[in-house]
């Protein structure tokens, strides 16, 4: 074995054993490390913001925008919908954003971003545009503008930080709130406590149905996957959509330190499928590494506490498990080892 092959093998081994899942790795070259491992990352969403302790959205936004800034050489403008992300980063006169950033209304982020992108084109500038918002501003209030942006194939990457409810205004249900979850508007009362089954929408699939160049889901529990998707999206022109699962300690009723753990369990039980699609077709899915029953994910959150009263599992736990099982089958979430 010559020196260079040995060196390659050494790097691969290290990656395999300690580095694959961590943010960085002291033994691999800078180019192989994540954006977040770099001391020079842009910290697009910097300290001093007013998000709650352990906020998954603050984390997901920094992950995504830092990666996009690196991919575009910092030549980037962000347009923000109303929501937690807008409120906690920009209480007047402070801002946490380290890039040009603008906010208009709750429902029009996609349309405003379309306009900003058009303006760059008219001015002959190469500046790229990202629109971002929470699930309320995306799947409910901003949905018409979003669908229009997709349909026109405007050159915008839209990122939805999905925390499964209107958390900023006091944890009300959105169309992305999962079945059985308790919110202020779906209280844990009556014969069917919590959110109902069979409603809501999974916007990534609707985005795929628009046939746009790129759609992906991601999670704050898999940084490398998230960064790779954002960087890939910035290498594509036209309408792109990424939806990132971002746990909300306040709205989900979980300890602040469990944010990443919950995101990880949501993926490992199959409830939150992580996949990529291009031009209307799903191209690949992220495999489950250590499959768990959905119960292990639900029981850590107070929004599902009513499913586990008196030491007995509510029958709806099995219905949620059936949803996970269907996801696993539909998106091919099991690897060769697990299948």
């Amino acid at each position: 074995m010559d020196d260079s092959t040995l060196a390659q093998q050494q790097q691969k081994l290290k990656y395999y054993q300690k580095g694959t899942f961590t943010v960085g790795n002291r033994l691999v070259s800078d180019a192989e490390r994540s954006v977040q491992a770099s001391a020079e990352r842009s910290n697009a969403l910097t300290s001093g913001h007013r998000a709650c302790q352990g906020c998954g959205e603050a984390l997901g936004a920094r992950y995504a925008i830092d990666a996009a800034m690196r991919a575009t050489g910092n030549d980037l403008i962000a347009v923000n919908a109303t929501g937690c992300l807008e409120v906690f980063t920009t209480p007047y006169p402070e801002t946490s954003w380290q890039l040009p950033w603008l906010h208009s209304l709750f429902g029009n982020a996609a349309a405003v971003a379309t306009g900003v992108a058009a303006a760059q084109r008219v001015k002959g500038k190469a500046t790229r545009v990202i629109a971002q918002g929470g699930d309320g501003g995306t799947t409910d209030i901003g949905f018409q503008c979003l669908s229009g942006m997709f349909e026109r194939n405007d050159d915008v990457l839209y990122i939805c930080y999905d925390n499964e409810g209107y958390m900023n205004t006091g944890v009300q249900r959105s169309s992305a709130t999962p079945p059985a979850a308790r919110t202020a508007t779906t209280p844990a009362l009556g014969p069917e406590p919590g959110n109902v089954f069979g409603t809501g929408k999974f916007v990534p699939k609707i985005a795929v149905a628009h046939g746009i160049p790129y759609v992906a889901t991601a999670t704050v529990a898999d940084l490398r996957d998230l960064e790779a998707k954002v960087i890939k999206a910035m290498g594509i022109r036209g309408a792109r959509y990424i939806q990132i699962n971002v746990p909300c300690p306040l709205g989900w009723g979980a300890p602040s330190y469990d944010t990443i753990k919950l995101a990880r369990l949501a993926v490992e039980c199959g409830l939150y499928p992580i996949f990529e699609a291009e031009h209307g077709r799903i191209t690949q899915s992220r495999k489950i590494r250590r499959r768990i029953p959905v119960r292990d994910y639900l029981i850590l959150q107070k929004r599902y506490a009513h499913l586990f009263r008196n030491g007995v599992d509510d029958p709806r736990v099995a219905r949620l498990q059936a949803i996970c099982d269907a996801h696993i089958e539909d998106y091919g979430l099991l690897g060769d080892d697990e299948a």
Partner: peptide, 21 residues
């Protein structure tokens, strides 16, 4: 610590300072 950068990466408040290799 084996300098995996996890703390530096996962802090939602960017409150971990990386001191270098």
């Amino acid at each position: 610590c084996f300098e995996c950068d996890n703390c530096y990466g996962v802090c939602p408040d960017n409150a971990v300072i990386k001191l270098g290799a």
